[in-house]
Write a protein that binds this DNA or RNA. Structure first.
Lengths: 249, 249
DNA sequence: CGTATAATTGACGACGGTCAAGCAAGGTGG
DNA sequence: CCACCTTGCTTGACCGTCGTCAATTATACG
């Protein structure tokens, strides 16, 4: 349990985008009764139809929320990085309408809904901040609808990459314009509504234009300005407050 | 102001899906200081980048939330019917990342954020219920990503129609399997990521298969079972509680 | 009546999917 | 240490869904 303190650092960093936590508030988060677990890659954490009694915190690794269509195709609707609470909504919506699974091996923390509700009741500013996080998720979903619905394949993928870099910066996991990007091309396809073959060709186009380099799960943005332009990326929907986070570091 | 009482009936109906409102709670909603306005068709109510100081209630008519892509294409990410509060999220997110505009002439009510916050602070069950509404919106966004990303054109459109019927039932505006459907084919295209030409041909396919009839802004579902099957529609994401609402009436 | 909006139809082309094969890299076991 | 297998990336050929362009036909409205 000792490493819970360091493990929730990204979450605290994210919440403090809005306001500085008081010592009490910070302590309340650090004192949450978390049961930590390591989960292998490509495993479901929770499934469609579940009625979870606890929330799941991503402490390390990468996960995703997805749906399976009637024809058996997977649509990824969100990726999760350390600091995210992917099923926060399950506190208020009984049944899960999606599944959440790991992409890489993950360290996750489970916190009973009961403890979450008490935390929210006692610290209304934290309640508001968590509330706000789910609204930002919703804003991301809206942007993804636009991404899948309106943009050509290479821009779709570029947009996804821009979002990743911006979100990694918020939790302090970006190294300048370089991030860990352990997403396979098939998974990119599932997130953008494209086939893996077409994803491959589109990524090559991005490389040829000198916008990115991507190898060994490392994504380097070579020209942030041009990539944003190409991707039609405007970070307003991430509600970062500190707009400098969205700019080249 | 006298007709505010009847105008919020759909909203109250929606909130009472979760629990019966007490007399106090109901009165608090009826006593909200609403400024009512009539807005013509195809007008923006609020715009991308705005920092509204009040929330907007749809009392009559139909509206939509949309984004404009860099190439000037419109993506509709949600439709709004009476009882909806399309920009509820603006209470907690300062800047609007979308625009909201009318489809038909609308009667809307504006309630200051201040009054909303007081309502939420005083009646925590109402706060939870409104909170929950935004989570359902997010669930709808997730389903739309899947719709646009994975389903063929005719199914996409059929899915949109299924959702409309289910949502109309919740607020008591469906007449059996028949609803008002004042959405142009271009607007259906903007919501599904399709061209108006292809929407037209897909709708004709739905008609030819005896699934729907659509004329004079009236949509009649001729075979609910088969339409759901064809659309890959599972109402779980609408979180209706009373599942019978999603079934043929 | 003239005009604007919406629905419809046809012809043509492109973006992206499917199928299939080849290649590279990492892990496992004999 | 190398054969083997799995997973992921890459490439080519072909095809279909869907977009674009353009013209025609309602329908409503001033």
């Amino acid at each position: 349990l000792s490493d819970w303190n360091s493990a929730v650092a990204p979450l605290i960093m994210k919440l403090e985008r809005v306001f500085a936590l008081s010592a009490d508030e910070r302590q309340a988060i650090l004192s949450l009764p978390a049961r930590m677990t390591d989960i292998k890659a490509d495993q479901d954490i929770v499934r469609l139809g579940d009625r979870p009694s606890r929330s799941c915190f991503i402490l390390d690794g990468m996960a995703c929320t997805y749906k399976i269509s009637g024809e058996g195709k997977r649509q990824i609707v969100n990726f999760h990085i350390p600091g995210d609470v992917p099923d926060l909504q399950s506190i208020y919506l009984g049944v899960l309408d999606v599944s959440i699974g790991t992409i890489t091996p993950c360290r996750v923390g489970f916190v009973p809904h009961e403890a979450m509700r008490e935390l929210c009741a006692k610290y209304s500013r934290i309640a508001g901040a968590l509330w706000r996080e789910t609204l930002i998720d919703a804003a991301i979903f809206r942007e993804w609808i636009t991404n899948v619905g309106q943009r050509p394949a290479p821009s779709r993928i570029a947009h996804l990459m821009c979002e990743f870099v911006a979100r990694f910066r918020v939790v302090g996991l970006a190294d300048g314009n370089t991030i860990q990007f352990p997403i396979t091309q098939s998974e990119i396809g599932d997130a953008t509504g494209l086939s893996n073959v077409h994803v491959n060709r589109s990524i090559q186009a991005l490389r040829k234009q000198g916008l990115i380099s991507l190898q060994d799960s490392t994504l380097m943005v070579l020209d942030w300005e041009r990539l944003c332009e190409f991707a039609d990326f405007d970070p307003i929907y991430l509600h970062l407050r500190d707009e400098t986070l969205a700019v080249a570091g």
